[in-house]
Amino acid sequence: MVSYVLKRLGIAVLVAVTVSLITFSMIYLSGDPAVALAGETATEEDIEQIRRYYGYDRPILVQYADWLFRAVQGDFGQSHYLKKPVGDVIFERLPTTMMLGLCALIFALTLSIPLGVLAAIRPNSLIDRVALTIAVVGQAMPSFWFALTMMLWFGIYWRLLPITGSASWANFVMPSIALGYYITPGVMRLTRAGMMEVLSADYIRTARAKGLRPITVLFKHALRNAIIPVVSLAAVQFGFMLGGSIVIETIFAINGLGFLAWESIQRADLPMMQAIVLVLSIFYIVLTFLADMLNAWLDPRIRVA
């Protein structure tokens, strides 16, 4: 188990370093940052001055090492636009995004896992068809369109829920559903497929031959094995949601990381964008690592592998 954890941890660190390198290189892919910063009316001298001021005249590797060294200490530099430390702004916004992501994940899992299980127990039944419909609609509908539709009905016509802001829990209901619904189909279909496969396994017959109650057979013996691939998928999807929250947060004007990312892109605030991408990536890596740990706990065969 210890060697498995260390191995996964090592991989996580390697991925994080790679991501940071790509994140950093982004500056140069989008053109000369000094020119972008100086604005259209700047002279050659202005640009040169800015280049020296921000240290863009140094070799790239030196810049990267410097940036990375500071980044691991939580110092992502100054925001070009807000004139505040990037780190402070990010950690101010982060809880909101995490809250949204978590609510969306809880919504998605509480909807998709029970539906997937029910659909697997009674394939081709009414409940299976309802679940399939929900999945197809979820897969086909863009989340921004779904979000706007919800706003229209629940927010404007019926006035049940606030349509913008992040002041109270009520503000999170629609965004969580919009964000969570997007990952529901995948999780639900995988749960269904996994359950169906596991339910026909020999060890389920063994469990039934022991006279165990159907509930025990279903949840203890079947679900634990069927859920293993679902955990991996849910972790990846949760990562997608953090990224996908850029759209949802913008629509609902939620002061989270996604909204900040959208603002920063508009303001060409490079240090901010870099830091947001890096933070989201690190989140993604941490989630994958946690999913691996959860799976190792669920499946003893992974632990020794």
């Binding site: 060890y203 017959r205 063994t206 031959a209 022991k210 006279g211 165990l212 203890k220 094995n225 003893p300």
Partner: peptide
């Protein structure tokens, strides 16, 4: 089932649940 009449299956490789210890599966019935 499992009390008055019990069954031994052909495939010992797949008839035990991989996720639980054999102790756990032994005492269940």
């Amino acid at each position: 089932r499992g009390d008055r009449m019990s069954m031994i299956f052909q495939e010992p490789m797949t008839s035990l649940n991989p996720a639980y210890t054999i102790g756990d599966q032994l005492i269940e019935a």
